[in-house]
Design a protein around this nucleic acid. Structure first.
Ligand SMILES: [Mn+2]
Ligand SMILES: [Mn+2]
Ligand SMILES: [Zn+2]
Ligand SMILES: [Zn+2]
Lengths: 140, 140
DNA sequence: TATCTAGTTTATAATAATTCTAAACTAGAA
DNA sequence: TTCTAGTTTAGAATTATTATAAACTAGATA
């Protein structure tokens, strides 16, 4: 009871902290994404299915898109560009690497320290490195 | 004269060698892609513009798509998945890495030996590494 | 060289993911 | 309670790509 109360308040504070109004849609989506003690990868399609399946009130696809974008901009989600034609998102926002299975089209985390880059090039003049995360493509 | 002859014959042999009929469309596209002594990156959109601009006879967009796919399957091109919603291709088929500029949306090659991976994880059981090329995202 | 046909090209339609639009709704400040 | 900027929503629009099916052609064979 108080636990649920706290969880919801945490979400509300988190949203407010980024200038996002805590609407019931955002709160419900946030619960689905951040409630767990484990992180996971998803696409808009899978998130939409998950949310509009259970006993939940329905949320429009447009809002799912809007919210995922807002959460990504706020730094609560990371976008992972790895697949043709479809964006993946990660609730694990720590810097880390991935396996991407070309067959099942699934991502798996690789801990940051599981890959060691002993030599990295200097970026072109005037540019800086925004992100250096490795995607290793695997298959059967 | 003989030089052009040879170039065209090289292309024809290359195509035949992969079971691809050397049609005039494929030959023209191949000239645009492989004629140079330098490699480059492109999207279907940029290739289509390039080909349907100059004095060339026109080639349909569908054929551009078909041909890029055929050349990729034949190993003459590499697909680079790095950008949301659009596929990039590389005429450099040697194993190498890339900078991807988020601002200009341009790829730049990084020589294979400019990045050294001193530690790489073992892929999940039953899977093997298909590809380990690093994309470093850069910005201003 | 003429004929034949599987492979290819093409215009166009269809699909898939995503973004846009504009009207209805709502959080929360006043 | 009122008010309004921010938000949600259904549906249309857009973009990249793939599918369809009719017309064309490379090149093997007669
Ligand atoms: Mn798309
Ligand atoms: Mn697409
Ligand atoms: Zn991850
Ligand atoms: Zn390259």
């Amino acid at each position: 009871m108080t636990k649920f109360m706290n969880q919801k308040n945490e979400i509300i504070n988190k949203l407010r902290g980024s200038g996002l109004r805590p609407t019931k849609q955002r709160i419900l989506i946030a619960k689905n994404l951040f409630d767990n003690n484990k992180t996971f990868h998803f696409t808009v399609e899978t998130l939409n299915r998950k949310i509009n399946k259970s006993g939940n009130e329905k949320i429009s696809l447009a809002t799912i898109y809007n919210t995922v974008e807002a959460f990504t901009n706020a730094g609560y989600l990371k976008e992972i560009l790895t697949s043709k034609n479809k964006s993946y998102y990660d609730t694990n926002i720590k810097s880390h690497h991935h396996f991407y299975d070309e067959g099942s089209k699934e991502l798996t985390d690789i801990n940051y320290n599981q890959i060691k880059l002993s030599k990295v090039p200097i970026p072109p003049k005037g540019k800086k490195i925004k992100n250096l995360e490795v995607v290793i493509r695997i298959q059967k």
